[in-house]
Design a protein around this nucleic acid. Structure first.
Length: 432
RNA sequence: GGAGGCGUCGCCUAGUGGUCUAUGGCGCCGCACUGCUAAUGCGGUUUGGGUUUAUACCCAUCGAGGGUUCAAAUCCCUCCGCCUCCGCCA
């Protein structure tokens, strides 16, 4: 949700932002008109309702004295008042319905507006990203004298990944992690959590099923809706990221400024329908319907949001550095932000067999957008106001596993374990 | 799954249809008094929206949503959550 004061005072700012995203700018003008109508409707109702309450206050004592002393004058007075009240009640009811309808309309439009794009985000579609940084040098396999295998070949040879049986049991884009594949995930989880807790984040295990309000509040029921699994029988959604339960965790709460920032490291399974990606990444476990992920989530004073964003990015880089993976950092373009983010940095790891960088983590500054939708506020000396929320991937399992297998493979088909990960694999230096 | 109880302002709590403002206490904030602190006194203290230069005022908000009524925290219905007991179960 965008600050209504910004919409009223600087509508052009929001129009511009919608255009940068390739979304409907007319919504802004629709909102402005609906806002005026709704306020008029509300005022009309308020006035009538006040009249009704004043009348009710006359009625009370009158009824009391009528009971004690039923004179004809009193009866007539009460009857007259009652007639007036009946007529007024009908008008109040109509005004109430009218105002509610208008309010709903404003809220519906407001809910459809995406967050205001940060002025520094590059403008354009997915390919208009800006390269911020290149870290590490991809290995020269030709110089080393062998052709790198893809992660699936390696994973199958190590009996670590089984996609055939994944497909047999659950369909395409499902997989089993077996043996050292499973242990590798646990090691990554423990490394990620060790880093997170060392940085002061609070470890948290979240539900993977959430109520519609949580999905709605985090902004995933807009253009992302087709990628969300819905459990119709119970009206619940399977989360695509623990960002959803983490954001909703403090919904409807007012947090004292002294408690901020709150930083969490959440662990959950993530479910994605991957609608509209038929034929894309069909090999291996780059794009799957279900995976586990450690996600960082921050609630803070809006004035601190930018610094927190930088911090999240740094922690993501630290993690990839620890895994000795080459990667690049990009500033995601306006058209590819998702409705909640004002600015987003992706980290893409080098995938040797694809000869390209592929997204492994993503960190978004969602400013006050999610907090407004979820009614998360902070209280400082000046009163209450929405706070800012941010999220960032620490470790999305399958893609990190892909990057490790491919980048650290050796000519004989074994895989070197990065030093930082070794303690979490019982000291093992090589997967063989 | 079955039976019963409960959900009121940060916390506790009063409130079975109107009788000026949803009680009262604790905590908190301000002021006064006071060597200091404490105690005491007075005032304020849910959240959201609106009108207003200001001071103020108005509306909504008693778990959520409907309904009955001229009028609902209070009565009725549905849902959610918590507690107790029973059954089943990882």
């Amino acid at each position: 949700m965008i600050d209504p004061n910004i919409l009223r005072a600087q509508p052009e700012l929001v129009r511009e932002s919608q255009i940068k995203r390739g979304e409907d700018a007319n919504l802004v003008d629709q909102w402005l008109a609906a806002d005026i109508a709704a306020r008029e409707g509300q005022q009309a109702f308020d006035l009538l309702r006040n009249e009704q309450k004043v009348l009710g206050k006359e009625m009370g004592p009158l009824q009391g004295s009528l009971k004690k002393d039923p004179t004809p004058e009193l009866t007539a007075q009460v009857d007259a008042l009652m007639a007036k009240a009946t007529e007024l009640a009908a008008r109040v009811k109509i005004a109430d319905e009218h105002a509610s309808n208008l309010n709903e309309k404003v809220n519906a439009i407001a809910g459809a507006l995406s967050n205001i794009v940060d002025p520094r985000s590059p403008v354009g579609g997915e390919d208009k990203f800006e390269l911020i940084e290149l870290v590490g040098i991809p290995r020269d396999f030709a110089a080393e004298g062998f052709v790198p295998k893809n992660h699936l070949e390696i994973g199958e040879a190590l009996k670590a990944i089984d996609v055939d049986r994944g497909a047999k049991v659950s369909g395409s884009r499902f997989y089993f992690l077996t043996g050292q594949g499973a242990l590798l995930e646990f090691a990554l989880l423990n490394l990620a959590m060790a880093q997170a807790t060392a940085n002061g984040l609070i470890p948290i295990i979240t539900p993977a099923l959430v109520l519609p309000a949580a999905m709605e509040g985090t902004g995933f029921l807009g253009q992302a809706e087709e990628n969300v699994y819905r459990v119709e029988s119970d009206d619940l959604y399977l989360v695509g990221t623990s960002e959803v339960p983490l954001a909703a965790y403090h919904s409807d709460e007012i947090i004292p400024a002294a408690d901020l920032p709150l930083r969490y490291a959440g662990w959950s399974t993530c479910f994605r329908r991957e609608a509209g990606s038929y034929g894309k990444d069909t090999m291996g476990i780059i794009r799957v319907h279900q995976f586990d992920k450690v996600e960082m989530f921050v609630l803070c004073d809006p004035a601190q949001a930018e610094a927190e964003h930088e911090r999240l990015l740094q922690w993501e880089k630290d993690f990839l550095d620890a895994l000795e993976l080459p990667y690049r950092v990009i500033d995601v373009a306006s058209g590819d932000l998702g409705s909640s983010a004002a600015r987003k940095f992706d980290i893409e790891a080098w995938i040797p067999t694809q000869g390209t960088y592929r997204e492994v983590t993503s960190t978004s500054n969602t400013t006050e957008y999610q907090a407004r939708r979820l009614k998360i506020r902070m209280r400082d000396s000046e009163g209450t106001k929405p706070l800012a929320t941010l999220n960032g991937t620490l470790c999305a399992m399958p893609r990190i596993i892909v990057a490790i297998l491919e980048n650290h493979q050796q000519a004989d088909g074994t895989v070197n374990v990065p030093k930082a990960l070794q303690p979490f694999l019982g000291g093992k230096k090589v997967l063989a």
